[in-house]
């Protein structure tokens, strides 16, 4: 009898232990991939956008503080990408279209940042812009020339970029929603454009009313 009791206790204990392992290992059954875990952590940390120097498609050079006081929606891309990036930008264009034009540039900026500064010079970026009817003003495309700044930004925002050895990169994709002071507000699924647009509008409206 004593043996039986001990077995039951052992089994219960092992079940509880297994449960804990999975509970903590998946942030409370939330994050099953490193990508979702990354987003989860980002939301916990709410990092600030580091001050980097951008060079955009109109060859203007400025720091990120230029956008201070405005919301920003960011994506990370490289123009020679053939699979995810075009899709990512296409979806971003859809979000862009859903934002009322009087807010664009005033309250909110769209910004696509290239992590391939060697190839994505302003000319290339300008060409790339046309595919998505980005105006270069309220939706800008820019590169970061300083390698150190670039890697610190990618690091801070948890963007992992792996060269695939054939001139391309494999990287994770999402919409990054940055607040007025440069703090990261949300990382949104780039496949759910409507959801993203609603979220952005809600935040804007709340902010403007309050």
């Amino acid at each position: 009898m004593k043996k039986k009791l001990r077995n039951i206790i052992l089994i219960s204990f092992s079940i509880v232990l297994s449960f804990c392992l999975f509970y903590f290992g998946t942030d409370g059954f939330q994050a099953y991939t490193a990508e979702s875990a990354r987003i989860y952590r980002l939301m916990e940390e709410k990092p600030f956008f580091p001050n980097v120097t951008l060079e955009d498609s109109k060859e203007r050079v400025y720091e990120f503080t230029e956008f201070e006081g405005k919301y920003a929606v960011l994506t990370f891309i490289y123009t020679s990408c053939t699979d995810v990036c075009p899709q990512l930008e296409m979806n971003l264009a859809e979000v862009y279209k859903q934002i009322p034009s009087e807010l664009l540039g005033e309250e909110i900026m769209f910004l696509s940042i290239s992590f391939d500064p060697d190839r994505d010079d302003p000319k290339t970026l300008e060409k790339y812009q046309h595919f998505f009817s980005s105006d270069g003003e309220t939706w800008r495309m820019a590169r970061i020339n300083n390698e150190e700044q670039l890697s610190s930004l990618l690091d801070e925002f948890g963007v992992i970029v792996l060269p695939d050895g054939e001139g391309g990169f494999t990287h994770n994709s999402a919409f990054y929603f940055v607040g007025r002071d440069g703090e990261l507000l949300d990382v949104m699924d780039y496949k759910k454009t409507d959801e993203a647009a609603v979220k952005i509008m809600d935040t804007l409206q709340n902010d403007m009313e309050g």
């Binding site: 204990f13 092992s14 079940i15 297994s18 290992g25």
Partner: peptide, 18 residues
């Protein structure tokens, strides 16, 4: 049984893509 439960839990944990 308790041993095998822990074994399954640990191996499954390491099979999570994360």
């Amino acid at each position: 049984v308790s041993g095998i439960i822990i074994f399954v839990a640990i191996t499954m944990f390491w099979m999570l893509p994360r």
